[in-house]
Design a binder for these strands. Structure first.
Lengths: 143, 143
DNA sequence: TATTAAAATTGTAATCATTACAAAATAGAA
DNA sequence: TTCTATTTTGTAATGATTACAATTTTAATA
């Protein structure tokens, strides 16, 4: 469980001025590593922050990602998901139930930031799709 | 350069009935490994297939992907891109100019289809972002 | 060849997550 | 306080993709 101080430090470390709204969003992400969408974050925070605007959620998430304080996950075609876990790891999405989970990849740390063709790599996203433990039981329903 | 026969075989191999439109789209993808969007494909084929509908392009791409005849690339937030190269490989996108290119990944073939947590992995997508050879020269402009 | 049912294609309208924009509120310095 | 820059907010716009129903094409059979 991250404290307010942890959250504030995360913002400051990445050059984001900590406002009430930014603190709330960053705190939610750090204490809920469930890869939520902007919509989910808005709905969860709205009760305790009644004036919060969805635009602010979108703006803040975009800012946090740009500064590197969070990761944007594009494994789902419909919504962007966000992750406060910024250490290198992959993600998995179940094609049946749609659940998204972390997916540790061995050797991910050692992926070269220099490519053979001269590109400078600044980030890599590893997405895995298939069927989760539960949904494998229903493999006969797959079309 | 793939022949009509190659294209037809690709469709048949993946259980897709070869219509005029499907052949045209599959042929374009096989002979233009530039990761085009549905819009690009439509614009390129439209002159020689004046009755072609954009809906058909979307429908066909969705079908081809579902059957495994092509790969859908979600490296760009705006558009889905398509690739007739279905052998395992990663993709790179330049954050400055937006170009998307293939990105060979060593050992990609040996990625396990069994995960430690019991998921059944059916596909993996490896996305790399950064700056291409040309855009690296302008590194001082990066914000 | 004519008939007919299934499949494919088409055009238009709808969807909906995200962004643009400008006004209002807030924060921070002087 | 006053002033200015920053942040937040609400509404409207965007635009790629999909839903849907009508039309056309295909292909099998009589």
């Amino acid at each position: 469980m991250n404290t307010k101080v942890d959250v504030k430090n995360r913002l400051l470390d990445f050059g984001v001025k900590p406002s009430v709204q930014r603190m709330a969003i960053m705190e939610y992400l750090m204490n809920n590593l469930i890869h939520p969408t902007a919509d989910t974050i808005f709905n969860q925070l709205s009760p305790s922050l009644p004036t919060l605007s969805k635009t602010t959620v979108y703006n803040t998430l975009k800012l946090l990602e740009k500064r590197g304080a969070v990761i944007a996950i594009h494994i789902d075609e419909k919504n962007i998901r966000y992750d406060a876990n910024i250490s290198p790891h992959g993600h998995f999405k179940c094609k049946r139930c749609g659940c998204v989970s972390d997916f540790p990849v061995e050797g991910i740390e050692s992926i070269s930031m220099e490519s053979p063709e001269g590109q400078l790599i600044t980030e890599c996203q590893l997405y895995f799709k298939g069927y989760c433990k539960e949904c494998r039981k229903h493999i006969n329903e797959f079309t």
